[in-house]
Simulated assay, not measured.
Amino acid sequence: MSSLERGELMPELLRIENIKQHFYSGGGIFRKGYTIHAVDGVSFSVKQGETLGLVGESGCGKSTLGRSILKLFEPTAGKIFFEGRDITHLSVKEMRSLRQEMQIIFQDPTESLNSRHTVGMIIEEPFIIHGIGKPVERKLWVKELLIKVGLPESAAERYPHEFSGGQRQRIGIARAVALKPKLIICDESVSALDVSVQAQILNLLLELQQEMKLALIFIAHDLSVVKHISDRVAVMYLGKIVELGNALEVYNSPRHPYTQALLSAIPIADPRKRNTNRIMLKGELPSPINPPKGCHFHTRCPYATDKCKEDKPLLVAKVGDHADACHYPLTNQSKPNSVN
């Protein structure tokens, strides 16, 4: 149970304002260059001890946004505030000290762990980089971290390839929490694991969050997983947040047509039942090189009107803290006439 679920009022830890991440591909003799609008104006905040789930289709910009927040990519525009401090334009040297407070858990533990290093060396590395502790102390801390994530002390002498996928992800988590950060970005951190192992890793993350008062940005495309772990959910489409609110409200009363379509795709656990409420979106996901004018979703939305094609909707909280970027949010009222 997170701090928010217990009703505690926690201060704001992270705030991003109108973050954009564009990538330019240079042209050549026979072709023009082009710009990829991977993240196109995203704003939200995260409180201490809170879990914000970030969901959307593959290619919508979720992972890019996570890396931009950590300044692994230098944002094209916008501002990033961490504990009230503007870190948008900090140098590489200034960011190094701040990285003790902000960490990431990657999707593929096989690729993110150095195969030439023992597990002990991998987990000890953050302490060495930041000049923390003496060698004897660091060895002791490594053993404590291994136990904390459910691995034996003897794992320190072995190599990543000797472990299963779930165990390798536990090693990645141990490395991420080694410096006692305040924010961890989980970038599809359970998507490569079996369902049973996913549950174990999620429970471990929740235990560590409660113990260390961690804030998590949980990036995933599996909405059932996000529902299990998140306090709030942000739904992303083509580089933009289209809906943001309390997890239960978003899941029980989606206001954006895209959110409704995503939720309708969640598989039903009982094989004897068929999903009769599935919403099949028509058309292909537009290219981030040339996103549609107006609402980015209007090319696939069954309720789109001429206004949707021309006017860009803003992410506005129309009911409480539940915000949506839609001219015609889904309510009990009648829907506009479709023009698709």
Rank of each mutant, 00 (worst) to 15 (best):
F23P: 00
M10C: 13
V39K: 13
I219R: 01
V225F: 03
L72C: 02
V242Q: 13
I129Q: 01
D194P: 07
L262Q: 09
Q21H: 01
R31H: 14
A176R: 02
K143D: 11
P286D: 04
A325Y: 05
I185A: 06
P126K: 01
R31L: 09
K148M: 07
H221L: 08
A234I: 04
P291C: 03
E162Q: 12
V250Q: 11
S154H: 03
S45H: 08
E188T: 11
T76P: 09
E12M: 09
T305C: 12
L204V: 04
T76G: 03
S45L: 08
E137D: 10
Q107H: 11
M102D: 06
Y251T: 02
L202P: 00
R15K: 15
L223S: 08
V136H: 15
L146R: 09
S253A: 06
E94A: 14
F82S: 04
L281G: 08
F44I: 00
A323I: 06
I104A: 14
G84V: 00
E284I: 08
F23N: 02
E57M: 14
N252P: 10
L54V: 05
G27T: 11
A77C: 05
V197P: 03
R255V: 01
S196C: 00
L113E: 05
F44T: 10
V142T: 02
G283H: 04
V233G: 00
E50K: 12
S264H: 01
G239R: 07
T35D: 02
M102I: 11
I217A: 11
M1P: 15
E144C: 03
I241S: 15
K32F: 08
F30E: 13
Y303Q: 12
L52G: 08
E243Y: 12
D231V: 04
G56D: 08
N252Y: 14
L146E: 04
G7L: 13
N114C: 07
D231S: 07
T110F: 15
S58H: 07
S97G: 02
W141S: 13
S264F: 04
V242M: 12
I229R: 01
E249H: 13
L206S: 09
V242L: 09
A77H: 14
E162D: 02
S154K: 14
P292C: 09
L179D: 04
D108E: 04
L263D: 09
D324I: 14
V92P: 13
I266K: 13
V149Q: 00
K227E: 10
P292K: 04
A265Y: 05
F30K: 15
P291Q: 12
I104Q: 05
L238Y: 15
T305N: 07
R116C: 06
A77N: 13
I184M: 01
D306K: 14
E111Q: 14
E162G: 08
M95Y: 03
T118N: 02
